[in-house]
C-alpha cells in the first residue's frame, strides 16, 4: 500500500504493519528521541505496537534539532 512519510511517498507491504514495524523497517536503530503523528494525530509510544498503518496514511516523524 501507498503511504507518505514526511511527505515522501513510500510503498509498504499490505499485510498489517504496526507503527512499531514501520519504524523498525524505516529507521532500524535510529528510534531514540523521535515522535510520530499519523494524519496530524500524535500516536504515543505506548500505542506503537498495536496501531496499524492504513492506506494513504500521512506519517510525520520528528526528532529534536538545534534551535533557540
Amino acid at each position: 500500500m501507498e503511504i507518505t512519510i514526511n511527505n515522501q511517498p513510500v510503498t509498504i507491504p499490505d499485510d498489517g504493519l504496526t507503527v512499531q514495524d514501520l519504524l523498525y523497517r524505516e529507521l532500524s536503530d535510529k528510534q531514540n528521541g523521535i515522535a510520530l503523528a499519523i494524519n496530524n494525530t500524535v500516536i504515543p509510544k505506548t500505542e506503537w505496537s498495536n496501531h496499524y498503518i492504513t492506506e494513504n496514511d500521512h506519517i510525520l516523524i520528528i526528532s529534536a534539532t538545534q534551535g533557540g
Binding site: 514526511n6 529507521l27 516523524i61 526528532s63 529534536a64 534539532t65
Partner: peptide, 10 residues
C-alpha cells in the same frame, strides 16, 4: 536549554 524539532531524514 532550548531545542527545535525537525522532520527525521530517513
Amino acid at each position: 536549554v532550548t531545542v527545535a524539532l525537525k522532520r527525521v531524514d530517513l
